[in-house]
Design a protein around this nucleic acid. Structure first.
Lengths: 361, 361
DNA sequence: TTGTATGCGTTATCAC
DNA sequence: GTGATAACGCATACAA
């Protein structure tokens, strides 16, 4: 907490340049004096001042990450992947939350830009493309996560949302479902839109095109999945046999809403989510879902960023777009529609009878 | 990204000290020149170098937080509270994960100590008390979160775990349960132990003291709650009517295990958790639990830390131990035992019949 | 009210 | 192989 390179030098009976050498390049120092210096460092518990060092080197050995919040599974696990990779490479992580407020995101980014960090990962960016463009043009290294490049020359890392949406829907179609509700997340996010596009495409490929009213609004929270489903049931009744929610949390909320109305999952309605969150195997019924590799997204984004940082000055790399593949995880919440089932047991009939006050078309 | 205070000074036709003054104390500068300087700053998009500034002031305006990981609800929300409060006060947050490995925690703390941060919040510390003691003695500001002081002169913030454990158990007792399983979390953590103590005390106050085999080992993950419960059922059968799990995730895992064995919650077994996590209202049945104010814990810890940091040099404050109160949140997963229920409907009987292959005492 | 000069703890350039 | 010394960008004591 209080020793400087000077103290070390004095005690080790060498010059500060020698100490600096053993601290860094470790070359051009006789092994004898190196050992002596090292001993003193150890003894004093000395560690170099980060600020002095970065003032000189213009490198902070720190990267920033801007995320909306740390709730739910997604952001937390992304951060995990980022921190892990950063730490492995000797970088620290400054986390800035913007609470889904654009102004705060801009503030965070400006702060990042103020030389405090060597580069930044922007997750689920809210702001328009212009400020990102200006960031890039000013030579600031950034990578976008969970977002498309939108024509910008940036590195991006995203999940294969379209394919995930397609797979989920296709899976339900194969199970015999055709009346499939889609609960979208925040619709201004690329990730939500693409899952939606995958859903639409799968339906279209199957010749189904009508279902406008089947699109419910959500915001990725379980509350939104719950109330969207509840509202829909109260308005339209049970005129669907399956739900695809843009994330697991909304799927779980939807199941709860169905359950509250006496509708059984999966016997009456199949549900599929997106994420393969921590809780997905443990909810009842366990959730069939599209697995998104959240931690890996963080890892990859960090690797991209660090490779840019360390290659500064060399010729500019062309922007890279990494798309992380998804997998379908089959669990209990999605099953074939009754006509396709081997056996229809009494339990299902019983449950169906419980549906009251609903206009069943 | 590239202007310095010098550039600003030159363009504004003032000295760098004047610029510095408007940047900081903002006093002793005529409003005319201040405006001029401000304009130049604005125009250039200048922002002072953090490293230079902290080299000079010996303050980094950054605090660190060390947590095991960012999975589940607890740590993420604590971080949320910390970041919020830090940002409000102009501080940045460096997050360091130790992945439940002591060595990494020590590394993180040493790093924090290397002057990069003005203070640190240590969450759920793994390491022994000695290294924390040495930290404190060397004048480093820290606050411990989710952990007891263990006689150390540190500020701590924790949930009222004992009372939470007591309340949960007492609630079950009032519902008529007496055979209550306890699933503990990582038993080396204060928080888990105290919830356990609360459980034991409530039983004792009620004159129940025998239940050694009723204590199951868990580690706060849903997996552990699941497998502990499954293992117990396979070994002892259904010789209990309620479960108190040291967190919601394990409670949800336990419910899943019961469900897999054909045991209904809450009809056959009542379950109560701890946390009031994000998902608690949406699992089926919705989870009765003890609410832990995670974000507030983060807020309070940060306030304690910042107050220490800003009062450096003044006479030392005596350590403060803040205990955040808990609340019981009643939902669906815990109900009176059958003899205490107003009505026993056929549904319950039916469910009970489903229990097979279990030695029911 | 404003300007000048010094030093914070490093790294790097140059000598020796 | 080693040692002076000049920056890095800023805050501040001291002058003016």
């Amino acid at each position: 907490m209080k020793y400087t390179i000077k103290d070390v030098a004095k005690i080790a009976n060498v010059s500060i340049s020698t100490v600096s050498r053993v601290l860094n390049r470790n070359k051009g120092v006789s092994s004898k004096t190196r050992k002596r210096v090292l001993d003193v460092i150890e003894e004093l518990g000395y560690s170099p001042s980060a600020s002095a060092r970065s003032l000189k080197t213009r490198l902070s050995k720190t990267i920033g990450i801007a995320v909306p919040d740390t709730f739910g599974d997604f952001y937390g696990e992304v951060i995990n992947g980022v921190e892990l990779t950063a730490a492995e490479n000797g970088y620290n992580l400054i986390v800035s939350l913007n609470h889904h407020i654009i102004k705060e995101e801009l503030a965070a980014v400006n702060f990042f830009k103020a030389k405090r960090v060597d580069g930044a990962i922007l997750v689920t960016t809210l702001g328009d493309d212009d400020y990102i463009r200006s960031l890039i043009e000013s030579g600031f290294d950034i990578v976008l996560l969970d977002r498309d490049p939108h024509g910008l020359r940036v590195d991006t890392v995203k999940t294969d949302n379209f394919r995930g949406g397609y797979m989920a829907t296709e899976y339900l179609l194969k199970l015999g479902h055709s009346a499939i509700l889609f609960i979208q997340g925040l619709s201004y996010l690329d990730s939500s839109r693409e899952r939606f596009n995958g859903y639409k495409k799968a339906l279209k490929d199957k010749g189904i095109e009508r279902e406008e009213i089947f699109i419910l609004e959500g915001d990725f929270t379980p509350e939104s999945g719950y109330s969207a489903t509840k509202g829909y049931l109260e308005k339209h009744g049970l005129n669907f046999t399956a739900i695809f929610a843009a994330n697991d949390q909304m799927a779980i909320g939807a199941i709860k809403a169905l359950n509250d109305k006496g509708i059984s999952v999966p016997e009456d309605v199949s549900v599929i989510g997106f994420d393969d969150s921590y809780m997905a195997p443990y909810v009842i019924p366990s959730l069939t879902t599209i697995k998104q590799r959240r931690e890996e997204m963080g890892r990859v984004a960090t690797e991209l960023l660090l490779s840019r940082i360390t290659s500064r000055g060399k010729r500019e790399k062309t922007p890279r777009q990494v798309i992380i593949p998804v997998d379908l995880v089959e669990r209990e919440s999605a099953i074939p529609i009754p006509s396709k089932r081997k056996e229809v047991n009494s339990q299902n009939i019983k449950n169906s009878q419980k549906i009251k006050g609903l206009k069943i078309p």
